[in-house]
Design a binder for these strands. Structure first.
Lengths: 199, 199
DNA sequence: AATAACAATTAGCTTAAGTTAATTTCTAAT
DNA sequence: ATTAGAAATTAACTTAAGCTAATTGTTATT
């Protein structure tokens, strides 16, 4: 069950964690031995509406899209790319998921579960400190995104996106981007035209 | 320095914490002895734009409004009422605050700071478990609010607010509500009229 | 009770987003 | 290379939000 992808990706995780806390070589090994890294081909549905999320995800490579289906239409609510964690609401609340998670590209993910996380924390208690820090950062980031969304017009939101996550525009279809911005694909087309007209 | 308000409010805190973890009588005393409960009169600014937040807040009674000033206009971005925690972005990032926090009513708040929290956690390590749980709940709640905001029209957002936080409409001026919903007070007026017309 | 300050509504006009439908462009599969 | 299907754009029309300004309603203060 040896997996080249996993071996390379382990180093990304170690590096990521090391930005928060210092790991001894032994602790690094504990993490490496977890072997919870999995590649998913494009279009894999990680979580479907109605399902109970039993895992949380850390994107090592690729892109995951979060979307709701409302009146039969897909409404994208978030994109997760390299080094972003996904904690499904369903994972926290233990209720059926309101939304889908699906891979927009071939994606490599580190999987977490309550049981495994607790086990890991028992072995490396420092990890809990990291968790608290990460939670606080995510909370801050969420708030900033919400504030931007509320205070900016659709056009400003689009401009903002081209600045804060320019990569997304190249790796994700525009109709996904549109609903992510809270508008229709037609509106996004017009906005892009308007912007290109005025240079 | 004995304070009646604080004595009563302490019980709320104990009760709130007990929903997450079990406290021994000794631990309850430790928390009570913190004495970090303060009343603030209406219109007190807890945090101003540009300031560094050194405290986080837990609202025991009253209402705190978060707002940005954009082009000289106040844009409300959140309301915090009983049993809600406020962790300013500035508190997490150590950067100057982008927004204000101010009391809409006379408000009683439990104050937290990194130093005091760490001290407390040293004495009651269980508290860290609670923190992680709370963070996870807040994260879920934030996501749900963001999704609602993105996927609902202004009118639907207003209707949704009347269902999820009906108290707010009675305790907060409508012009605050309007910007909180991401619209102008004029638009909110029209929406309310539209709704009352159609019963 | 009168007044000042602020909150909320109303009106008219402008602008842009939603909706429906058609057309063009792009992509992937045979 | 051709074609089918999807994505993106365009257009025409409808609807509602933003903006400016005026008016009415409410609250607090003297």
């Amino acid at each position: 069950m040896y997996n080249t992808t996993a071996v390379v990706m382990d180093d990304f995780i170690i590096k990521y964690i090391s930005a928060y806390i210092e790991l001894t070589p032994e602790e690094e090994d504990i993490i490496r031995n977890q072997n919870l890294i999995k590649p998913f081909p494009k279009d894999t549905v990680l979580l479907a509406e109605g399902e109970h999320a039993r895992e949380c995800y850390f994107v090592l490579k690729g892109c995951v899209r979060r979307y709701h289906i409302i009146n039969g239409e897909e409404r994208t609510t978030d994109f997760y790319t390299e080094n972003q964690s996904i904690i499904p609401v369903s994972y926290s609340t233990k209720k059926p998921s309101e939304y889908f998670l699906s891979c927009v590209e071939d994606t490599v993910i580190a999987l977490g579960s309550n049981e495994r996380n607790e086990e890991l924390i028992k072995q490396i208690p420092k990890l809990e400190t990291m968790l608290v820090q990460m939670a606080s950062e995510m909370q801050a980031q969420n708030q900033i995104e919400m504030d931007n969304f509320k205070n900016l017009s659709p056009e400003e939101r689009y401009r903002n996106l081209t600045e804060t996550r320019p990569d997304l525009l190249n790796r994700v279809p525009l109709n996904y981007i549109a609903t992510y911005l809270g508008i229709t694909p037609e509106s996004l087309s017009r906005i892009r035209k308007r912007i290109s007209r005025n240079r």
